[in-house]
Design a protein around this nucleic acid. Structure first.
Length: 543
RNA sequence: UGGGGUAUCGCCAAGCGGUAAGGCUCUGGUCUCUGAAUCCAGCAUACGUUGGUUCGAAUCCAACUACCCCAGCCA
């Protein structure tokens, strides 16, 4: 642990702490509130929490921050755990803040006994009104100076359920004139006659985050409590509880904040996801259009690529907006090496081979992944009627167009070299189909086509459903559009074969990805910020 | 106008007083049974602004400016 070179400001701080405090073990925690599914923002936090501890040979606890029973449920707990496991992280202990309710209650009693907490009878509105403003100090509550005995009795009665929701609160007695609003006698316990998903009806008072979090951290021996920037203002309060609660012994945890993740063009917000899911605008939490881990997984993203992304974007304190191309690059880099490829034609134009027997069918072997030297192959049926990509034919070619042109040659991926002999048009003057012929003797004739294109046999391909996706809040139209190599059997495919996404149709470099023919089961065209994206939908969990 | 933060290439981001890492994007070239991938090369005299200290500053000091967060009995 002595020779660790810090690679960000958090690790730097930890190295200093190790020297100054003589820490033996670094312990972090990932503390999600079980009220929603894991999203890419959580992933960043998860990576920071786990990877930091890992670097110092320490460990990370998973703690469900379940201090508000009105929002939380067991379903989310399970989903959260599944997601973290899927990412490949192993927590040392699984805890629940609710496991500490007794301890936390004792801490509150201790604070009261020290005259550092009091039962307040101000209503929520009154507390709000007496809190002061950003520029003016607050007013002290008339209940602030009750006797310790009375506070003890009242708090006991709060716990016993004598009062209605909101009637009383327990507040820390700190400083109503503090320039930091969090220090103006924050509420630490509120009355909520709501059953807790794990505690049932045992409690009707629940601790607030600001109180429960630092004490939970300290209680379970967390040395570094890493959280996002918006909690910077809470740090003095965090330290106040750790310093003032006499039940805390041992190493005091240190809170360090980092900037949360923002991705351009993507909303990362539980509230927003809930709206979309509950409103039926998306398929569910795992809709591939959502930046949830479940959505990414369904879309074919891999855990390692997502983790790589989190590593690449780094950890800092500046509020930055990461461009999605960084994530895309991570996905592409990995999937390029691992994903099985098949041919897919999105915008077909028919090719009829005049010198190929119309009753004949041939099996063509095509590599599952050309970047793998001894890649397995899959069989694709070849016949006299084919579809090629409309974009791969140009009637009046530009000088550097290497694909199919009238009287030009092009190679059909894994199959023959063909020549376009005639462009057949309909009455409207649009291309109906192309009459082509196979050049069987390319070698003899010295024909070396510069281009290679993908294709599908008309009678052996099948349509896939695609939808045009205008706006996340509107129902998309349905289009029949696009073909899929029929030979593909999803069950035989390895994990993560579904890559496509998200790429701009107009960006040529990225177009190559679809042209390379990854598996598509169902596509969605989405338009965001004037860019058109194509994403896969419908491939069920690949786990 | 109170408090807490942040400002380095199109996007992330290192740097911690000794003369601007790296990744993504982009641009050339190479190669190729998909114009992809690969490989090779290029891409900040410049670090929010203005002053100051110093032989020397992105790094220290001062004053500005811009943006973010805080007035839940949410986390």
């Amino acid at each position: 642990m002595e020779n660790i070179t810090p690679s960000n400001f958090i690790e730097q701080a930890i190295v200093e702490d190790i020297k100054e405090k003589g820490l033996k073990k670094i312990v972090t925690r990932f503390p999600p509130e079980p009220n929603g599914y894991t999203h890419i923002g959580h992933c960043k936090a998860i990576c920071i929490d786990f990877l930091t501890a890992e670097k110092f040979k320490g460990y990370t606890n998973l703690r469900m921050d379940d201090t508000n029973p009105s929002k939380e449920s067991e379903d989310y707990v399970k989903a959260l755990m599944d997601d973290i496991k899927w990412l490949g992280f192993k927590w040392k202990n699984l805890y629940y803040a609710s496991d500490y309710y007794d301890f936390l209650y004792d801490c509150a009693i201790d604070l009261i006994k020290q005259g550092k907490a009091y039962v307040c009878e101000l209503s929520a509105d009154e507390i709000s009104q007496t809190r002061g403003t950003l520029t003016e100090p607050g007013k002290e509550s008339p209940y602030r100076n009750r006797s310790i005995e009375e506070n003890l009795r009242l708090f006991e009665e709060m716990k016993a359920g004598r009062f209605a929701d909101g009637e009383k609160t327990l507040r820390a007695k700190i400083d109503m004139a503090s320039p930091n609003i969090n220090m103006r006698d924050p509420v630490i316990y509120r009355i909520m006659h709501v059953p807790h998903f794990r505690q049932g009806n045992k409690w009707c008072i629940y601790p607030m985050y600001d109180f429960a979090h630092p004490l939970s951290d300290a209680h379970e021996g967390i040395t570094h409590s890493l959280c996002s920037l918006e909690f910077e203002d809470h740090r003095p309060l965090y330290n106040w509880f750790v310093d003032n609660c006499r039940l805390i012994t041992g190493v005091k945890p240190r809170q360090i904040e980092f900037a949360r993740l923002n991705i351009a063009g993507t909303v990362i917000s539980k509230r927003y996801f809930i709206e979309l899911v509950d409103g039926g605008y998306v398929d569910g939490w795992d809709d591939p259009r959502l930046p949830t881990l479940a959505g990414f997984r369904r879309k074919g993203y891999t855990a390692s690529a997502i983790k790589e992304f989190c590593t690449r974007i780094g950890v800092a304190k500046s509020n930055s907006i990461v461009q999605p191309h960084i994530l895309e690059a991570c996905i592409r880099e990995e999937l390029n090496k691992t994903a099985m490829r098949v041919m897919a034609v999105l915008d077909p134009i028919k090719v009829i081979l005049t010198n190929y027997d119309s009753n004949k069918t041939e099996n063509v072997e095509i590599s599952n992944n050309p970047t793998i030297e001894k890649s397995k192959k899959h069989t694709v049926k070849f016949s006299n009627e084919l579809y090629i990509e409309r974009e791969d034919f140009m009637e009046n070619p530009t000088p550097k167009f290497f694909r199919l042109t009238p009287n030009g040659y092009v190679r059909l991926m894994g199959a023959y070299v063909i020549k376009c002999d005639e462009v057949v048009k309909n009455s409207a003057g649009e291309i109906d189909y192309l009459k082509c012929s196979i050049a069987y003797d390319t070698k003899e004739q010295g024909i070396k086509p510069k281009g290679t294109i993908h294709w599908l046999s008309v009678k052996h391909s099948e349509k896939v459903r695609t939808r045009k996706f205008h706006d996340l809040l509107k129902e998309g139209e349905v289009y029949e559009h696009g073909m899929l190599d029929k030979i593909i059997n999803p069950n035989s495919m390895e994990e993560h074969v579904s890559y496509i996404e998200p790429f701009a149709l107009k960006q040529k470099g990225n177009m190559q990805f679809i042209r390379n023919g990854y598996y598509i089961e169902d596509c969605v065209l989405s338009k965001q910020n004037d860019r058109v994206y194509l994403e896969t939908v419908g491939l069920k969990d690949s786990k």
